[in-house]
């Protein structure tokens, strides 16, 4: 029986990767609840194509779905205000994260700055500086040329420097990736 083996492989993959991918999804969309929806949909799609993806790069497949679906959601709903509970406020929608609310609030500025970027620039920043992907890997995930990755990164860093000058110096913004 193949199915139990595939099932186990899939479960192992999800267990190993769900943490990092969910955190990346939060940076894509700025909202922990939408991020969970995005990642759940991505894993469902992965499961539906597990036979053809398992021997390749399921990680890259999920990243690609996450990016595309986050862009689709962005197109559908426009720029969403990144979610952030007020300091000291209990997150009534998700009691599981109460211990991390203050830390989540602390990161609101960064998520807001990311939310101001066009989706592809945001994805380049997340993939490069959060997921440590190479230019070639980013190009593969986003379906663009390596040169475009560089130009998008440069534009993104310039924009981030405007919103977070303390975080990104001029040299980094000019130097790109």
């Amino acid at each position: 029986m193949n199915q139990p083996t595939q099932d186990e492989e899939f479960v192992q993959f999800v267990r190993a990767r769900q943490g990092q991918l969910l955190r990346a999804a939060r940076l894509y969309c700025g909202d922990p609840h939408i991020a969970e929806d995005l990642l759940q949909d991505a894993f469902v799609k992965l499961a539906s194509r597990w036979e053809s993806v398992r021997d390749g790069s399921p990680d890259a497949y999920v990243r690609r779905i996450l990016y595309r679906d986050s862009v689709s959601r962005w197109r559908k709903w426009g720029r969403e205000t990144p979610y952030a509970a007020r300091e000291g406020e209990r997150d009534l929608l998700d009691s599981r994260v109460t211990s991390g609310v203050d830390e989540w609030v602390d990161g609101a500025d960064v998520r807001a700055a990311l939310a101001d970027l066009p989706p592809r620039q945001r994805a380049v920043i997340v993939l490069r500086y959060f997921e440590d992907q190479s230019e070639a890997q980013i190009a593969d995930v986003l379906g663009i040329a390596a040169g475009t990755v560089k130009s998008q990164a440069s534009k993104a860093l310039t924009a981030l420097r405007r919103s977070m000058p303390a975080l990104i110096d001029a040299g980094m913004a000019e130097g790109g990736l």
């Binding site: 943490g19 939060r26 894993f43 989540w104 602390d106 609101a108």
Partner: peptide, 16 residues
Amino acid sequence: LDHAAGHGPEVDFTGT
């Protein structure tokens, strides 16, 4: 970015 991404999930997606 690492800070802004928050903690890992307490949600289990293996049921997908």
